[in-house]
């Protein structure tokens, strides 16, 4: 289809969607109103299990099984990327090219921020049930922290710090133990991922029952998964060479 025809078709469809949106929005409860039936149920449920961060309570306690699915999606996407980016037979791994020059300020900032970022990531994971944050957010911060080493140092430094086999196992462990904890809830109370750990007192580090444990497992899974994922992209971009790929290039 020509570019012009495609645009015309899009504009027609977009106008239709816009009309449907406007109709739906006009029929919705007023923006910012008092009417939140789910909130009225979720907040008391979180308070009952002494989880100060209600969003974490919804994710890891009340809708725990959905989060199990969500975690499996992360695992599945890492496996999918690994399968898509696996080296083809005609590709060979070569030594990464020598590093380009980096500004000294970039190196300094990277090395200063590396430990800070790792500590912030651990903090966000560990306090996901009492303050904003949690396993998904903290896991991404941790993975970002590792890659500061690439920005500040070199790919070789990152590769030394990041034994991929260990991160592979960490990811599998995080996802697997989540299921184990869910099965423990099933065995103890008859409900998958039921909150079987004593819930402690509201707002303390040890509170919320299974919520902080699941946060740590998700943090492990997400940080390891993100590192493994980026490793595949790095390998693809830096150390693989294909006959003729560089010459053909272009086409952007």
């Amino acid at each position: 289809m020509s570019s012009r025809g495609r645009l015309a078709l899009f504009l027609l469809g977009a106008a239709g969607v816009a009309v449907l949106f406007a109709t739906a929005f006009l029929g919705m409860p007023a923006f910012g109103s008092e009417d939140h039936p789910y909130r009225d149920l979720a907040v008391p449920a979180a308070v009952r299990h002494a989880t100060a961060n209600v969003v974490s309570s919804v994710n890891f306690d009340q809708r725990g099984i959905d989060t199990f699915g969500e975690e499996t999606i992360v695992l599945g996407s890492v496996i999918g990327v690994a399968a898509l980016l696996r080296p083809a037979q005609r590709e060979s791994e070569q030594r990464p090219p020598p590093d380009r020059h980096r500004l000294e300020s970039t190196t300094l900032l990277g090395y200063v921020l590396l430990p800070v970022t790792l500590v912030v990531g651990l903090d966000v994971v560990a306090h996901g049930h009492v303050s904003p944050g949690g396993g998904f957010q903290g896991g991404v911060i941790l993975a970002t922290g590792f890659h500061l080493l690439y920005l500040a140092g070199s790919y070789q430094a990152l590769a030394r710090l990041r034994p991929v086999e260990i991160f592979d196992r960490g990811e599998a462990l995080g996802a697997g133990l989540f299921g184990v904890l869910g099965a423990a809830g099933l065995a103890a109370t008859g409900a998958f991922l039921a909150n079987v750990i004593p819930t402690g007192s509201f707002g303390q580090l040890f509170s919320g029952g299974t919520v902080p444990v699941l946060n740590v497992l998700v943090g492990l899974e997400v940080s390891c998964g993100a590192v493994v994922l980026l490793t595949h992209f790095f390998t693809e971009a830096i150390t693989l060479s294909v006959g003729g790929r560089r010459e053909r290039g272009g086409g952007t």
């Binding site: 789910y38 909130r39 209600v54 994710n59 904003p132 509201f202 707002g203």
Partner: peptide
């Protein structure tokens, strides 16, 4: 925000945490 603490008691009105959890998903 639906994160309680020393300044925000559980009896106060908060925004809906369920849709925020869905946003995270």
């Amino acid at each position: 925000a639906p994160v309680f603490g020393s300044t925000l008691r559980p009896s106060t009105r908060v925004t809906d945490p369920v849709v925020q959890a869905m946003t995270l998903t």
